[in-house]
């Protein structure tokens, strides 16, 4: 497709986004404002991640896109073909082969390595937004490192439910300074935020970019007597038998029969190809 500039965006827009990415990497966890553009897809489809991706891609990249862990859902397929057409990059579904991965709300199970880049789509970048709706106030709270409200929220969870009930978009503290929303990844994925890869977060509608350089210290907020627990459904994957992956619960009939499957389709397919088998496979065999 020669009618578009490389990676769709014009050069001046990419420079603006690139400057924001550099400042975001220099101040880990701080949300850098940027002049988000309209993209040829609706807000909520990952316009922030797509813009960060457009400013980051090089022609030699191999791209992987996942939507809730899956490579074959609508959002993943359309974003992958968007960059295949406008940037001419190679695409893959294998985590280990990708140089750049765009993700919607999961971190791949296969550990990321030096040289890989993970780009997150972020709906609401401000972790304090549901506690304090005014941007002027949340900005001041970040400036003053005033995060007491977030701890009160987690404490109220414990008072009401006995445990911290936040299961996704679980807030983290970055290098002991900024409280950050890791995007709506399940809290199961929070320990993986401490990664060898560069992690970039783009929020298109909210016009914010933030970042985690490799090996950045990321701590999930908790209390001494209620330590952080990256919980997981108490089942093995029905297809590959994995006991260490994040699972989706799938209802299979009207009688309430259900099965648990790996949310990361590449990880699950890789295990099945290596001969691992879950209960559903063993029953069919």
């Amino acid at each position: 497709m020669t009618d578009y500039n490389f990676a769709y965006l014009d050069e001046q827009t990419k420079r603006m986004i690139r400057r924001a990415i550099l400042k975001a990497l220099a101040i880990p966890g701080y949300q850098v404002p940027f002049a988000s553009r309209e993209m040829p897809m609706p807000y909520g489809w990952g316009t922030g991640g797509v813009q960060v991706m457009a400013a980051t891609l090089v022609p030699e990249d191999t791209l992987k896109v996942i939507d809730q862990g899956a490579d074959d859902t609508t959002n993943a397929v359309s974003i992958r073909s968007f960059f295949e057409r406008t940037a001419g990059v190679a695409v893959t579904e294998a985590t280990a082969e990708a140089t750049v991965i765009q993700t919607r709300h999961r971190i791949p199970e296969t550990p990321l390595t030096e040289g890989q880049i993970l780009v997150y789509q972020v709906p609401i970048p401000e972790p304090l937004r549901f506690l304090e709706p005014r941007e002027t106030e949340t900005r001041k709270m970040h400036a003053l490192e005033e995060y007491g409200l977030m701890h009160v929220k987690l404490y109220e969870d414990i008072a009401r439910h006995g445990t911290i009930a936040t299961a996704y978009a679980y807030p983290v503290k970055v290098e002991g300074r900024y409280v950050m929303d890791p995007s709506p990844i399940p809290k199961f994925d929070n320990p993986k935020l401490d990664s060898a890869a560069i992690q970039l977060f783009g929020a298109g509608r909210e016009q914010r970019i933030y970042a985690l350089p490799p090996h950045t210290r990321v701590v999930s907020l908790d209390f001494e007597d209620h330590p952080f627990d990256p919980s997981r459904a108490d089942h093995p994957c029905a297809l590959c038998g994995a006991t260490d992956s994040y699972l989706d619960e799938v209802i299979t009939d009207d009688a309430g029969t259900r099965m648990f499957l790996c949310s990361d389709t590449d990880y699950c397919a890789g295990r099945q190809a290596a001969g691992h088998m879950g209960a559903a496979q063993a029953g069919a065999a």
Binding site: F6, A7, E11, K14, R15, R18, I21, L22, L25, A26, A55, T56, L57, V58, P59, E60, I198, A211, P213, P214
Partner: peptide
């Protein structure tokens, strides 16, 4: 420009 930025980003991140 993309290749050069990528190098600049890698050194700023590492």
């Amino acid at each position: 420009g993309a290749r050069a930025f990528r190098a600049a980003m890698e050194v700023m991140a590492r």
